[in-house]
Computed example of a mutant assay.
Amino acid sequence: MGEQPAGVAGKRRLRTVIIVAVVAVAAYFGGRALGLWGADDGRLKLYGNVEIREVQLGFRVGGRIDRILVDEGDMVKPGEVLARLDTRPIDDRLAGADARYEAASASASRDVNGLRPQEIGSARAAVTAAEARLAEARRQFDRRRALVDKGFISRADVQTAEAEVQAATAALATARNQLSLAEEGVRAEDRAASAATRNVAEAERRAVQTDLSDAYLIAVEGGQVLTRAREAGAIVQPGQTVLTLALTQPVRVRAYVSGADLPKIRPGMSVTVSTDGTTQTWPAKIGFISGVAEFTPKTVQTEQLRTDLVYRVRLTVEDPTGALRQGQPVTVHVPASGKR
């Protein structure tokens, strides 16, 4: 009567085994969560966010927007035209600048080349004619001076002939000076001045050409359009934001490491990055470790609240599909081996 049936004893033993197993499993996983088991395996977790990389795009010149060729959410490539201004005012300025440059260039070329042979020939002919007039004036003066002594003409006629000789002499000197200038060409100072005028006109034309190219808003880097701040027809000032572009490649993560864990990482180390809500991981490399300590930012969420000094780490993530979003919290898994 004091002995228990075999079935009852077996059930008690089974119940005891189950209870022990449950306690063991709970102790194991609880210890892992508290860092009691496997805490010294060398693996490290860092916490951070995908960096927000945005650029505010605007025209360097003011004007009226003619067209905006992209919309919010569109992916753009480097060199793609995103928007453009009405270029008619700039085209008119360019036409005027072209005309001024052509005129200044023609003047500079004329000064360098000098007078044409026909103009020099005309100057020589003018000297010959002046010499002939002077010879005739002297002949008339000599004839009248001989006649005045005989009383055939008055002394006033002689004085008139003498004045004509002086005028012919002056005209000959002027003609000879004009021939000398024609043969010598333009002065060096005048050539330098005309060349400078041409350079000013050329610089003005280049400036207008630059304004014309700046009337097209071109993506320097690839990315995604986040905001379309202006619409076609709007008048914008230079530098006013028209589009906001998120730079999607390369994907960069900013994480933080404590001073105690700093020796476990180094630039160029291969790591993996994960985020909440998915089991997918992304390969990454540590590219930069700050040499200046700072307090843990409020945006970094870890298992335990840390107030110790940390060091900023920047990583480059391979994410060709664009699954990671800017500002998204991520976890960086540093392998125990620390292989590159």
Results as ranks from 00 to 15, higher is better:
250 P>F: 13
237 Q>V: 00
147 L>Q: 12
119 E>S: 12
112 V>S: 11
173 A>W: 03
88 R>Y: 04
94 L>C: 02
112 V>K: 13
129 A>M: 05
273 V>W: 00
19 I>E: 14
275 T>M: 11
166 Q>C: 00
268 G>Y: 10
244 T>D: 07
139 R>S: 13
144 R>M: 05
135 A>M: 04
97 A>Y: 03
315 L>D: 00
310 V>S: 09
234 A>Q: 03
201 A>C: 08
108 A>L: 08
201 A>P: 03
214 D>N: 09
245 L>S: 07
101 Y>S: 11
175 A>Y: 02
238 P>M: 11
255 A>S: 09
84 R>F: 05
246 A>W: 04
109 S>C: 03
328 Q>M: 15
38 G>E: 11
28 Y>H: 15
163 A>V: 10
325 R>I: 08
59 F>M: 04
235 I>A: 09
52 I>V: 15
227 T>R: 09
84 R>I: 03
199 N>L: 13
13 R>C: 04
154 S>H: 06
205 R>W: 07
253 V>Q: 01
84 R>E: 12
271 V>D: 07
97 A>Q: 01
23 V>D: 04
216 Y>M: 09
24 A>I: 15
91 D>P: 00
54 E>F: 00
244 T>A: 11
94 L>S: 04
111 D>I: 00
290 S>W: 06
195 A>R: 07
240 Q>E: 15
331 T>F: 08
59 F>K: 01
100 R>I: 00
179 L>M: 13
159 Q>N: 13
11 K>S: 11
199 N>S: 14
316 T>F: 14
305 L>G: 11
111 D>V: 00
240 Q>W: 06
51 E>C: 05
303 E>G: 14
249 Q>V: 08
38 G>I: 07
106 A>C: 03
22 V>D: 06
133 R>S: 15
59 F>Q: 01
263 P>H: 04
340 R>S: 13
226 L>F: 08
101 Y>Q: 12
217 L>N: 00
251 V>P: 00
276 D>W: 03
57 L>I: 08
40 D>Y: 05
266 R>F: 11
101 Y>E: 14
299 T>H: 09
209 Q>L: 11
239 G>S: 09
91 D>T: 00
266 R>Q: 12
224 Q>G: 07
78 P>I: 02
158 V>Q: 02
27 A>P: 10
262 L>G: 05
13 R>P: 00
55 V>G: 01
129 A>Q: 10
294 E>P: 03
145 R>A: 13
204 E>I: 02
95 A>Q: 06
51 E>H: 03
206 R>E: 15
225 V>F: 07
96 G>F: 05
218 I>K: 07
101 Y>I: 03
12 R>Y: 09
282 W>T: 06
284 A>G: 07
221 E>Y: 12
120 I>G: 04
44 L>N: 09
249 Q>I: 04
53 R>I: 00
98 D>I: 09
90 I>L: 14
283 P>F: 02
